[in-house]
Amino acid sequence: MKRSSAIFGTALFLALAPGIVAGVVPWWMSGWELQEPLFGLPIVRAIGILLILIGTPVLLDSFARFALQGGGTPAPVLPTRHLVVSGLYRHVRNPMYLAVVATIIGQGLYLGNVTLLGYGALLGLVFHLFVLGYEEPTLRNSFGAEYDAFCANVRRWLPRLRPWRSDRTA
């Protein structure tokens, strides 16, 4: 895939998938209406803002790496040619999914909306099942030993404090 096509496809997928899942659906569920802070604690709103501020750049960085380093898109129909093992992927295997869930949970905390918190938790479970049932077997088939080494050194959901250095990132 040409670099320009990878960038375009990745931008389109970003708008469609996370744009809908972390933007349109939460708006539809909440109307972006601010409710009383959860537990009556204004600090909960600040935690929500923090999660949104962390999740958004993590998501954008992860998507950019798929196009610029992976030579493809995050969309299963137009996958990368290279396994992405740089940036935040040196800390955790699924920063993109974590970023989406963090953003939605952040919205729920900021807005004081328990329904959004439940949606974020359910989406986390759906992502987990998708990763186990489709993504990991597909990546193992595509990248073999390289992916096995990545899995052996980088956890699926809990980030490493120190980044892993593969032969490709050293």
Rank of each mutant, 00 (worst) to 15 (best):
G87P: 13
G87R: 14
L88T: 15
L88G: 13
L88V: 15
Y89R: 14
Y89K: 14
Y89S: 14
Y89C: 12
Y89M: 14
Y89P: 14
Y89G: 14
R90E: 11
R90M: 07
R90W: 10
H91P: 08
V92F: 10
V92T: 08
R93C: 05
R93E: 06
R93I: 00
R93W: 06
N94W: 09
P95Y: 10
P95T: 14
P95K: 11
M96S: 14
M96H: 12
M96Q: 15
M96D: 13
Y97L: 11
Y97Q: 13
Y97D: 11
L98M: 11
L98H: 05
A99H: 04
A99M: 03
A99S: 12
A99Y: 02
V100C: 04
V100W: 02
V100I: 15
V100K: 03
V101G: 00
V101C: 03
V101M: 01
V101L: 02
V101I: 09
A102E: 03
A102D: 06
I104T: 09
I104G: 04
I105N: 01
I105C: 07
G106Q: 05
G106A: 10
G106C: 08
Q107C: 09
Q107V: 06
Q107M: 12
Q107S: 14
G108S: 01
G108N: 03
L109V: 05
L109S: 05
L109D: 03
L109I: 05
Y110A: 14
Y110E: 06
L111M: 03
L111S: 05
L111A: 06
G112K: 00
G112E: 00
N113C: 07
N113G: 04
N113D: 15
N113Q: 09
V114Y: 05
V114H: 06
T115V: 13
T115P: 00
T115N: 05
L116V: 01
L116A: 03
L117M: 09
G118L: 13
G118W: 06
Y119T: 11
Y119V: 09
Y119E: 07
Y119S: 08
G120P: 05
G120Y: 02
A121S: 09
A121R: 04
A121P: 00
L122H: 00
L122I: 12
L122R: 01
L123R: 02
L123C: 00
L123T: 04
L123N: 01
L123G: 02
G124K: 00
G124T: 02
G124N: 04
L125E: 06
L125C: 08
L125M: 10
V126Y: 05
V126N: 10
V126H: 06
V126W: 04
F127M: 08
F127V: 08
H128V: 07
H128C: 01
H128G: 08
L129P: 09
L129D: 08
L129V: 13
L129H: 12
L129G: 13
F130L: 13
F130R: 08
F130Y: 15
F130S: 11
V131R: 06
V131H: 09
V131I: 15
V131E: 10
L132G: 00
G133D: 11
